[in-house]
Design a protein around this nucleic acid. Structure first.
Length: 614
DNA sequence: TTAGGGTTAG
């Protein structure tokens, strides 16, 4: 009985790991007792453990007097079984108190280590109550992780608590850091985590969108000699996809399939979607065939990814047709498109201007008992905004609200863009102003859309005011913020201000669009500073940027008007080099200037111009 | 027992 108590008690706590010179060891050795030898002692330890728990629960700052309340040599308070009992009991009721007791022990007795079952009990109690920071405190400041099995269950518990991981951005970093310390060559812990634990770290990193951590966990896993399995390969494929490296993911798949292993449908779906997104439909088709041949049938999500890629505007209209064909085909084959699939297809049709087909699908999904959600509404509202039917867009917007679907930054941005396109700036500004009152945040797109709208109608100072407001809100401007501002300033001849903005833009590490350079040159022409325009052109050419034909024509015209015919001819030469031709009015202007000045013997260029004219 | 998909500017 007494032996059984020592080996394991009803709390699952085994014997305390005694260092040779520990306080308790000396205490019992000196009295000739090294084990709990009878039931009387067992009862004493039980009783002391209960009293210690009571004291810790009820009295604040017990650390200062606990040892004076319980005589170490007669109460058994420092007996390993007693300590384990206290830890386990406190862990059950109040894990943070258990941790406090544990930290008190480690700080009071330098050679103290908790026995693995009690350590496991403490850590799992902290994990159960999601006290991850406290758990990491225990891990970092003590030797609590001496046993690998404790580590394994801790890792799995932490990695499955995605809510906490999302809430506390440092949790996975902490885990990675602890693991790196433990698997360091100088560490005494050489046994690796289990495959399940490693996989859970990879899965959690993906869910937290922390590919940097994924790579570190994966590197540790491989270094520690753990062989990856099919789920590992699936996670690896997904990690490569997230990094926009589908070819590397594809190579992982190839290596696996050579060995007859086909990863899960989720990772293959992500790979298919990645290739579809970049328009590599050859690879899409290859993987779909591989899936079917390997017995891992593509599902609705897989085809959804394909259709989404095909409907992408960048892919062009014919691809939307192909997307629609697949959408119809999968229905025939027994797949039941859901709200997301319908939304994707409706959005694709809207973006290619096929509003009638989009409306047919809209009715079809409702007839099938599916209710459009905010994504579906936004897609079709955007379609009507783009096609200029703002009345229909507004009607659907109101319908969306009447159905209890919430307005969002996206829905407001869509309407603001639609209003701006129609020149309804007052309405756009009104909607913009009501957003914060409704608790809807402005974002970069909101500001960019409205700034562009204001610039389009030359409300430049209002646009600049908005630009300053967004900066004050801490929203970092993007290239799309600056482009319309610089353009309108140039059009108004305020080239100095435009250059100021350009400098700000470059200071923020933003690369101006090529057309912004065109605006600057035309701006210089507008204020009669053709030579500065020419200098800017030369800068563009040195940077291998191709100006627009219209821009160079303007520059030639301006230089000619100012009588700088030599310069004008130089630019004409550049134009011919690029493959541009002179517009007829500019041509007439330069010829008249040449004829008016006999000193210009520029036969070559003149000949070319005359040839071009005829 | 579950995972993974869709909407806004340029």
């Amino acid at each position: 009985m007494s032996g059984a108590l020592l080996r394991s008690n009803k709390y699952g706590c085994g014997p305390f790991h005694l260092a040779g010179n520990s306080f308790w060891f000396r205490l019992f050795s000196s009295s000739g007792i090294s084990e709990v030898q009878n039931e009387q002692e067992a009862a004493l330890i039980q009783s002391t453990a209960s009293k210690v728990c009571e004291t810790i629960r009820r009295r604040p700052r017990w650390e200062g007097f606990l040892l004076s309340l319980f005589n170490p040599s007669s109460s058994g308070i420092l007996h390993p079984t007693c300590i384990s009992l206290v830890i386990c009991r406190l862990s059950d009721s109040n894990p943070l108190l258990a941790l406090r007791y544990y930290l008190w022990l480690t700080s009071s007795f330098s050679d103290f280590t908790l026995d693995p079952p009690a350590a496991a009990s403490l850590l799992s109690a902290l994990a159960r109550s999601r006290a991850w920071r406290a758990a990491f405190h225990a891990i970092r400041s003590t030797k609590i992780l001496a046993d690998i099995s404790i580590f394994n269950s801790f890792v799995v518990q932490l990695c499955s608590d995605i809510r906490s991981i999302h809430r506390d951005k440092n949790l996975l970093d902490n885990l990675c850091h602890v693991l790196e310390g433990h698997f360091h060559p100088t560490s005494c812990l050489h046994t690796s985590l289990s495959l399940v634990s490693w996989n859970s770290t990879l899965s959690a990193s993906l869910k937290a969108e922390r590919i940097d951590l994924f790579q570190r966990f994966y590197a540790m896993m491989i270094e520690s000699g753990t062989a990856p399995d099919a789920p590992t390969a699936g996670y690896l494929i997904r990690a490569f996809c997230r990094e926009c490296r589908p070819m590397e993911a594809y190579h992982v798949l190839r290596d696996l399939s050579r060995n007859g292993i086909i990863p899960d449908v989720v990772s293959l779906t992500e790979l298919v979607a990645s290739f579809a997104k970049v328009g590599n439909f050859g690879k899409v088709s290859e993987i779909l065939h591989l899936m079917i041949a390997g017995g891992c049938s593509p599902d609705l999500f897989t085809y959804q990814g394909v259709i989404h890629g095909l409907c992408n505007v960048a892919s062009g209209e014919t691809m939307v047709d192909e997307g629609f064909r697949i959408f119809c085909e999968i229905k025939v084959r027994g797949y039941a498109p859901d709200v997301v699939t319908y939304t994707t297809m409706i959005d694709g049709l809207c973006k290619s201007g096929r509003m009638d087909d989009a409306c047919l699908l809209w009715s079809e999904m409702i007839a099938k008992g599916m209710q459009p959600n905010s994504y579906t509404y936004n897609a079709i509202i955007n379609g009507y905004c783009k096609s200029g039917d703002l009345e229909k867009a507004q009607k659907l917007y109101d319908e969306m609200l009447s159905k209890g679907l919430e307005e969002s930054t996206v829905s407001c941005n869509t309407m603001i863009a639609g209003m701006c396109v129609k020149g309804m700036l007052a309405e756009a500004i009104k909607l913009f102003d009501t957003m914060p009152k409704k608790g809807i945040e402005h974002d970069l797109i909101t500001f960019n859309t409205l700034i562009q709208g204001l610039c389009k109608v030359s409300r430049t100072s209002d646009a600049i005011e908005l630009y300053l407001r967004m900066a004050a809100l801490g929203i970092r401007p993007s290239v799309s913020t600056y482009t319309p501002l610089i353009q309108v300033l140039c059009e108004e001849g305020q080239v100095t201000d435009a250059m100021e903005l350009l400098k700000l833009m470059e200071a923020e590490g933003l690369e101006p669009l090529v057309c912004t350079n065109d605006c600057i040159i035309k701006g210089f022409c507008r204020i009669g500073k053709a030579e500065e325009g020419m200098a800017w052109l030369s800068k563009m050419l040195h940077s291998n940027l191709k100006p627009r034909s219209e821009t160079v024509n303007k520059l030639v015209e301006c230089l000619s008007s100012l009588g700088l015919v030599d310069d004008a001819l130089q630019v004409v030469n550049v134009m011919f080099g690029i493959g541009y031709s002179l517009g007829s009015s500019v041509c007439h202007l330069i010829i008249s200037k040449l004829c008016g000045n006999a000193s210009y013997q520029t036969g070559h260029v003149l000949n070319e111009i005359i040839l071009m004219e005829t």
